[in-house]
């Protein structure tokens, strides 16, 4: 057999399992989401009639979606910079040759072990207004911890969700940035040191540029995660407090227990597709914006 085709049978055999799985569980539902987004169905999902692409713009313009979009964007604006700065800070802090640094590294990556569900419930316990530790300890400075409770106050519920989310994501960010830091050749630091650069200059001139691929990766991941926040909301606030719906993110609007579009497959699909497009636009913009500045270490 010609060399061009010699590898085709083994390649096919090796790719078929993944390709089949991705086709059934990712591509097919994506296509269906687009198609269903143009339909309007009854609660059983059997009888549908075609609304057309119009439905996407209807959903987009609806008050509920615009509100949820605003909540999701606010959440992202709170969690992405905070998570990034804290994660890089911790990683740089722990990237030292000190006795016992392993303990601190484990401590800083520990929140990776707490799932979103566990983390959310941890904060649910800590912030519980009547009996939560944080509420009892700090209510003199922050009265809303007790009355009505951080998660029940329309003004603080979203920041509280963000706090839980940032904390939960810290471990992952720490690990990725630490891996990035360890990929930076030590001689770069040493030559900067010999050139008389202080620690801040070494950070801005060596660390940050060399970390840029990891930072880009984390930024995209954190943004996507923020836009897709579901479990935190479900466990901490249930989308409330109501009637403001201060924490109803787009995913919660789609899947939440008391979602207004609970039984409307067409609307759910349309909203999900819009969420996908928004995530995609963010990812593309971030990649584009970073592209020129990212240094790929070889």
């Amino acid at each position: 057999m010609k060399r061009r085709l010699r590898d085709v049978p083994p390649a096919l055999a090796m790719l078929v399992p993944s390709m089949a799985l991705l086709a059934v569980w990712t591509v097919y539902p994506l296509v269906m989401a687009f198609i269903n987004g143009t339909k309007s169905c009854d609660s059983t999902g059997r009888r549908c009639n075609d609304v057309g692409w119009q439905q996407f713009s209807n959903v987009w313009q609806s008050r509920e979606f615009q509100h949820a979009l605003g909540v999701s964007l606010k959440l992202a604006a709170m969690t992405v910079p905070a998570g990034l700065i804290l994660g890089v800070g911790l990683a740089v802090l722990a990237d030292k040759h000190l006795r016992g640094i392993g303990f601190f590294r484990t401590a800083f990556s520990s929140t990776v072990a707490t799932s979103v569900a566990v983390a959310s419930l941890v904060w649910f316990v800590l912030l519980q207004p009547e009996i939560g530790v944080l509420s009892d300890l700090f209510h003199e400075w922050i009265p809303s911890l007790k009355q009505p409770g951080l998660l029940r106050d329309p003004g603080t519920a979203l920041p509280a969700v963000a706090l839980s989310s940032v904390w939960a994501g810290l471990g992952f960010t720490f690990i990725v940035i630490t891996a990035g830091l360890q990929g930076i050749p030590r001689d770069l630091y040493e030559s900067a040191y010999v050139d008389g650069a202080g620690s801040w200059r070494r950070f801005t001139n060596v660390t940050l540029p060399m970390l840029s691929p990891s930072i880009l990766f984390i930024t995209v991941v954190l943004t996507t995660r923020a836009l897709q926040t579901y479990a935190e909301v479900s466990l901490l606030t249930g989308g409330g407090p109501n009637p403001e719906k201060s924490t109803t993110t787009i995913p919660y609007l789609i899947y939440g227990r008391n979602s207004v579009i609970q039984n409307n497959l067409g609307l759910k699909s349309a909203a999900a597709v819009l969420l996908f497009v928004i995530s995609l636009v963010f990812a593309i913009v971030q990649f584009r914006g970073f592209e020129k500045r990212v240094q790929y270490a070889r």
Partner: peptide
């Protein structure tokens, strides 16, 4: 194709996958 599938969030696929 493989990389593109990574960009599809679970939120989009969950409804249909539940039906599947």
């Amino acid at each position: 194709f493989f990389v593109a599938t990574m960009l599809v969030p679970a939120e989009v696929t969950v409804v249909i996958n539940r039906r599947t």
